[in-house]
Amino acid sequence: MNGLQQYQRINAQTSITDADPHKLIQLLYSGALERINMAKAKIQARDYDAKGRLILKAIDIVAGLRGFLDKERGGDLAERLDALYEYMEKALWQANAHNDIEKLDEVSGLLRSIKEGWDGIREEAMSQQQAI
């Protein structure tokens, strides 16, 4: 492993250790988007083994996001997010099976939209967390 990769891994581990729950979700969104972008590059480079590993990691991250949903407290919004995450998982499986960059772009767009909303409520989430 080269120095840059070691630095990135240590930086990511430090970010996770120091992160609050809201930040952890932000890191998951970023991680999924990063893996999808890397998978697109691997498709273009015809490195299908690496592409498959990256997409599987993205699927795992989306499944993790889905698992964090609190359907009791989140109500209808949590249910809709659950359905959207399920759709993304299926789309990523299809993209993996067919080397479909358009499907990867579609999932990236959906993830970016959700991440932007999540990023936008950071202050509110932090104030609620401090009140607990």
Rank of each mutant, 00 (worst) to 15 (best):
Asp60Leu: 15
Asp76Met: 06
Pro21Met: 02
Glu86Ile: 04
Gly64Arg: 07
Ile114Gln: 05
Ile43Glu: 00
Ile55Phe: 03
Ala95Gly: 07
Gln94Leu: 08
Gln6Gly: 07
Ile114Asp: 03
Asp76Pro: 02
Met88Lys: 09
Ala131His: 08
Met1Asp: 12
Leu77Gly: 08
Leu111Lys: 06
Ile25Ser: 11
Leu110Cys: 04
Leu65Cys: 06
Glu72Gly: 05
Ala83Arg: 05
His98Lys: 11
Asp70Gly: 07
Leu84Lys: 00
Ile10Tyr: 03
Asp49Thr: 05
Gln13Pro: 04
Lys115Asp: 14
Leu54Gln: 11
Leu33Tyr: 00
Gln6Asp: 11
Ile36Phe: 11
Asn96Gln: 01
Ala12Val: 06
Ala41Arg: 13
Leu69Gln: 06
Gly120Gln: 11
Arg122Leu: 10
His98Glu: 13
Ala97Phe: 03
Gly74Ala: 11
Glu116Lys: 03
Leu92Thr: 00
Leu69Pro: 04
Ala41Gly: 07
Ala125Ile: 01
Arg112Phe: 13
Ile16Ser: 06
Leu81Ala: 08
Leu24Thr: 03
Phe68Val: 14
Leu81Pro: 11
Leu65Asn: 06
Ile59Asp: 00
Ala32Lys: 07
Val107Thr: 14
Glu89Asn: 08
Ser113His: 09
Asp47Arg: 13
Ile59Tyr: 04
Leu81Ile: 09
Ile16Cys: 04
Asp18Leu: 03
Ala125Ser: 08
Val107Trp: 14
Ala58Ile: 01
Glu102Phe: 14
Trp118Tyr: 03
Ile25Glu: 09
Ala78Asn: 07
Asn37Phe: 15
Asp20His: 01
Tyr48Phe: 15
Ile101Leu: 04
Lys90Tyr: 09
Leu84Trp: 06
Glu34Trp: 01
Leu110Phe: 01
